[in-house]
């Protein structure tokens, strides 16, 4: 564990909690892409199946359970509890345009053609593009609530910190995972446009 990975995980946790609290407190998911949240729930489900097969640390297990729990709770709030506030017309990105190519790529480019490894690779590739429906929705509505921009900021920051974590781990531990690194770069690059607006505007954002 290193400082980049720890702050990255905390940033990710902050993003997930911010979103969940925003929806719960305002009792509204206006401006939130339910499709991105479904994709994140799918990312965590396919990546954390190893909860059933291996124990790495209390921290690792605890965080995985929290991530999965919050992801499904968020999807539940959007599609069930506060369904009336879900803006389906603007959340029109076709998820199959992401899931199908990512699924195919995971079968072609992976470290090992085994069930868990393919699912892990699928989750890594999917996570790198899972935010697209949300960014697409903001570009369609033309604005985003301030709290939503904080959610996106911490979500984008987490994988950027992971890039530094991988530099650290390569230098100090010789750890190197090309699949995670390339996908992490793609994921972070997708936020660049948003980061620029977030830093320059500070307030509500129009992509």
């Amino acid at each position: 564990m290193n400082i980049f990975r720890l702050t990255g995980d905390l940033s990710h946790l902050a993003a997930i909690i911010i979103l969940l609290l925003k929806i719960w407190k305002t009792r509204s998911c206006a401006g939130i892409s339910g499709k991105s949240q479904i994709l994140f729930a799918l990312v965590f489900t396919t990546r954390y199946l190893d909860l059933l097969t291996s124990f790495i640390s209390l921290y690792n297990t605890t965080m995985k359970v929290i991530y999965i729990g919050c992801a499904y709770a968020t999807v539940y709030l959007i599609y069930m509890k506060f369904k009336a506030t879900y803006d389906g017309n603007h959340d029109s990105f076709r998820m199959e345009f992401l899931v199908v190519p990512v699924g195919g790529l995971a079968c072609l480019v992976n470290h090992d053609f085994s069930f868990l490894e393919i699912l892990w690779t699928f989750s890594i590739y999917l996570e790198s593009v899972a935010i697209l429906p949300q960014l697409f929705m903001i570009s369609k509505t033309g604005e985003a609530e301030t709290i939503t921009t904080h959610y996106l900021f911490f979500l984008g920051l987490y994988r950027a910190l992971y890039l530094f974590n991988w530099i650290w781990r390569f230098y100090f531990e010789g750890f190197f995972d090309m699949i995670a690194i390339v996908a992490g770069m793609v994921q972070t690059i997708l936020y660049c446009d948003f980061f620029y607006l977030y830093v320059t505007k500070g307030q509500g954002i129009s992509l």
Binding site: H12, Y67, W120, F175
Partner: peptide, 10 residues
């Protein structure tokens, strides 16, 4: 046979 990097990250 490619060595699979460990999966100790979230």
């Amino acid at each position: 046979e490619e060595e699979v990097p460990e999966k100790d990250e979230l």
